[in-house]
Amino acid sequence: MAVLPVPGAAFVAATGSLQPEDTVLGGALTLAVPALALAAVTGVLVISGEYGSGTIATTLTAVPRRGTVLAAKVALVAGVLFLAALASATCAYLVGDAMLAEDRPQGEPWPALLGVAALFPVAGLLGLAVGTLLRHAAGALTTVVALLLLPSMLGPLFGPAERWVAGASPTAALEKLTQSADADAQAVGSLGAWPSLALVAGYTLLALGGAATALRRRDV
């Protein structure tokens, strides 16, 4: 996840594949979308790995307070992903800024890079919630990747409702934060970048609440 954006920025700059209206920030973070998907996958694996190996039973025996177990995983996923994403996104922007033409619009990297970095732990926590609810790695991975990618892919099928379907996805929030030229209101909704981040964080918190309830009520 942390490695993808920097070589992606160098590749985009070297190939000159950006459109004239693309900003340096948007071009430098071209590979932030697959990196975001990997952040969600990381969140899934934090919990599904224990279910797959059976060590979750040992964990819950050692720490009977199941809310504490989940809270510890939340803190770990959020902290690690935020720091990794902030370093990666900042380096990618600096590489893009150094390699792209000086006459290209820069975009507004600050505080946008902080928002981008915050979105990665949100995606990771969404993955953690889905992994806790489903417990099966393959099913959880499929579900969380679909939640990230399908709204923007299938949005055009919903006609006038495209902006609502695609605009609620984490990838739409990412495109707005990176000020991508593809982030037009028709495709990703009229919400601003920060309200979009707040929306994604809101339903991620709801998913975590559901995951915590399920973890407390079932045997394992």
Rank of each mutant, 00 (worst) to 15 (best):
V80L: 15
A37R: 01
A72R: 13
S88A: 15
L205H: 05
Q19A: 14
A168Q: 07
A201G: 11
E21I: 13
D97T: 12
A166C: 02
V145G: 08
G167S: 04
P34S: 05
G189N: 05
A166K: 03
E175R: 13
T61E: 07
S180A: 15
A198G: 10
A10F: 06
L150M: 13
A211T: 04
G209D: 10
A57S: 14
G131M: 02
A72L: 12
M99T: 06
V116G: 02
A89W: 05
V46E: 04
T68V: 13
V77M: 05
A181Q: 09
T23S: 14
L45V: 14
T61K: 07
A168W: 03
G43Y: 02
L154F: 14
P64R: 11
T142F: 11
V44K: 00
Y51A: 13
A207D: 01
G79V: 05
T58I: 15
L134M: 11
E50W: 04
L141D: 02
G167D: 01
A214F: 10
G115T: 07
V24H: 02
R65C: 02
S17N: 12
H136I: 12
L119A: 02
L128M: 04
W164A: 12
A183W: 03
G52Q: 09
G202H: 11
L150C: 06
A62E: 08
G124A: 08
A146S: 13
V116Q: 03
Y93S: 04
A71K: 07
W194A: 04
A181Y: 07
L31H: 10
T142G: 15
V95I: 15
V122L: 06
S88H: 05
V122G: 01
R135G: 00
